[in-house]
């Protein structure tokens, strides 16, 4: 049965979205993309370094992976909008992962700047994927602004703390009319599976794979976890109970 992720009317071949940040080399990026089966990967926009050889775009191109430029490092709506416009011009895509963070210590989204930037980017024709707090009301505002997905954090970027407020993620999922992507905080495979069990449509992660001791093996693990979590969500888990419930027949017992 087809169970493809569809965002902005386009099919994405995997529910695991990979960030390319934190990898020690292009070779590692190449290996983790192959191992993860990711079909969508984020990149950042930075000043050209003429001495650099090899581009992350070449690696993504070889794998046929779609590029999702981000606005990482931007602190204001103005900076994020300009960065998104530059990414659109350079990469010929109107998709953007919108990040507007408040400071370097938390890397938490600045909700006011985020909604402002989202509204103006949508008006400018962008397909906006906002990286947001695990706040159901902020997620609602971003949807109303016309974002094509909402991407709540599980925990701060790079922290590997997992999903700190699963209840809020469930609330966001419950009222979402666009795909929900758990973005940031994943530390290991069980976090990714949990996100999918909570009803997220996809998981976006980077550090947990690129900074693992064996990045390619962790990428394969994350892919399996996302698949497992998705299947479990669709299969419908049993209700939790206070007491045991026998799974073996309780009738026909021999008198011994």
């Amino acid at each position: 049965m087809s169970d493809e992720l569809v965002v902005a009317g386009e099919k994405i071949g995997s529910r695991l979205i990979l960030g390319t940040g934190g990898a020690p080399s292009m070779q590692v990026i190449d290996e983790v993309i192959a191992a993860s089966g990711a079909a969508l990967c984020t990149v950042s926009m930075r000043r050209v370094d003429p001495t650099t050889t090899g581009s992350v775009l070449d690696v993504l191109g070889r794998h046929g992976v779609r590029v999702l430029p981000n606005t990482a490092g931007c602190r204001t709506a103005r900076e994020a909008i300009l960065t998104a416009q530059l990414a659109r011009d350079a990469l010929e895509t109107d998709w953007v992962k919108l990040e507007v963070v408040a400071d370097d210590d938390t890397l938490l989204p600045d909700g006011l700047e985020l909604v402002d930037a989202a509204e103006r980017l949508v008006a400018d024709g962008f397909k906006v994927f906002p990286y947001t707090n695990d706040d159901p009301i902020l997620a609602r505002r971003l949807q109303r602004a016309g974002c094509v997905a909402v991407m709540p954090l599980g925990a701060p970027i790079g922290s590997g703390l997992g999903i700190l407020n699963p209840h809020n993620i469930e609330l966001i999922v419950a009222e979402a009319e666009v795909p929900v992507v758990l973005d940031a905080g994943v530390g290991t495979a069980s976090d990714a599976a949990f996100a999918m069990e909570l009803g997220c449509d996809a998981v976006l992660l980077a550090s947990s794979v690129t900074r693992a001791q064996d990045p390619a093996m962790m990428a394969a693990s994350m892919a399996a976890a996302v698949t497992a979590g998705r299947l479990a969500r669709r299969a419908g888990r049993i209700a939790k109970r206070e007491h045991a419930r026998a799974s073996s027949p309780t009738t026909g017992m021999a008198v011994l």
Binding site: T20, G21, T42, S44, S55, N70, A87, L91, K97, A206
Partner: peptide, 10 residues
């Protein structure tokens, strides 16, 4: 003048 390109990130 700022000249930007895609690098690994995100």
């Amino acid at each position: 003048i700022e000249l930007l390109t895609a690098v690994q990130g995100g």
